[in-house]
Nucleic acid binder design. Sequence first.
DNA 1: GATTTTCATAATTTATAGATAATTTTTTGT
DNA 2: ACAAAAAATTATCTATAAATTATGAAAATC
Lengths: 203, 203
Amino acid sequence: MKIEPNITISDRIQQALTDQIIRGQLKPDEPLRQNHIAEAFNTSHVPVREALLRLQARGLAVSIPRRGVRVALFDPDDIFEIKAMRFALEPVALQHAIPKMTPDNLHKAKLALRACDDADDLVSWERTNRQFHKVILVACAMPRLLSTIDNLQILSARHLLGTWRSTWEARTDRDHTAILNAIIRKDSDAAVAVLKKHLQRLA
Amino acid sequence: MKIEPNITISDRIQQALTDQIIRGQLKPDEPLRQNHIAEAFNTSHVPVREALLRLQARGLAVSIPRRGVRVALFDPDDIFEIKAMRFALEPVALQHAIPKMTPDNLHKAKLALRACDDADDLVSWERTNRQFHKVILVACAMPRLLSTIDNLQILSARHLLGTWRSTWEARTDRDHTAILNAIIRKDSDAAVAVLKKHLQRLA
DNA sequence: GATTTTCATAATTTATAGATAATTTTTTGT
DNA sequence: ACAAAAAATTATCTATAAATTATGAAAATC
């Protein structure tokens, strides 16, 4: 019996390119040429095309037919838009998640909170922070909403890693603790209120 | 010089499949076999794969690696989720659109309103209704937000056409008129309020 | 003896590779 | 600066490999 998660080559390529774009190793507007990428991954260009298509769907790349795909630009308007969408959507997800929270969800949220406070460099903080925001919402069981939010958080991460790369220092996040406590108390209104403040705070 | 909009075969296939799913000609959970579709469109399966990938991104199809793609299911939970997301996002878009509305936007909105009232069957009403909702929001100039809303409206359409197919009669939509009037007065709050009521009203 | 179970094989289908046609970009010569 | 040719790149097609599902016959159980 095989427990392999049936990962396709496209998946691997997509994952790698996503990382590189988020980390800024691939710069905005940089062309993504299918043959070059295919060579780098030792495959043909077909899975590359599919990976690029998925990057487009996530807003990390843009394509002009017959002219190729490029890394998506990223200007202040984009940041503004992403913030507005997160501000509109994450509260909805949280509201619906809280009544459905399982002990397992709560446990994972606590772990994520700890991991987040323990992070000592920007890259790992970003990852754990994203994990926390994800885990407090999954219980809402709204797949489209969750995947939209996930995309937005990835885009936020791109901004975060792109701008703050140098100046960062470890700190404990009071907002996260406050949100988690409100969740434990099943106090949706308080949790949503803190979350909104938290989202507004991030640059 | 060619003014062709550079449409690819994938685009055509995607468009056609989207229509068929929305219209219910392709039933939920029906398998979408790439070879069969390729044959139907007189192409190879490669562009079909790409079209299917885009349907996935839009939530109209789901894929299990190496097991193929199927038309997405569509149960009451999905409807609830889609409604919740539209309710959260469309007001944001409208709020930002109103101050940026151009005379051209307004003109198109008026035309769409008329077309909507003049529609005399469900299918064309659905199309014009979607057009109206789109045209009052485009001015916000937030591409991700707009494309997310567009997807949601397509999914709403799928529900609408799937359930109400038989019983429908022409009518003028007071909400649309009220929204448009508020937009003309640049009264964002009123416009958003009516839009919210309108979105809540749809089943 | 009939029914189910298991295993191997065949058929279908997906995923990837390699090749070709069409289009865009770059280069070069005037 | 412009036009034509060359190079590079995308989009598509045909072919092949890998995996899954379906089929059917032999063995085992009741």
